[in-house]
Amino acid sequence: MAFYSSVFNIVFKRNSTFVASIFAATFLLQVGLDEGVTRWYENRNKGKLWADLKPKVLAGFETEEAEDDE
């Protein structure tokens, strides 16, 4: 109970602190959500992204000299 009343007194009581906490939470939410969703998406598509394929493609160019694909 002391926790809830202290939270109220520190954050929610004055409107200036309340609004400041809302803006801080907005920034954290946007950055965190962007990072989190990007990481989940890249994890879900592992092996199909260019970052994963690039070393294999470059290795393919190292071994082969001329390609005739006409």
């Binding site: 109970m1 809830y4 009343s5 939270v7 109220f8 954050v11 929610f12 309340f18």
Partner: peptide, 10 residues
């Protein structure tokens, strides 16, 4: 629980 419910609302 009045503080808790108040915090929840806020």
């Amino acid at each position: 629980s009045s503080d808790k419910s108040r915090d929840f609302t806020y």
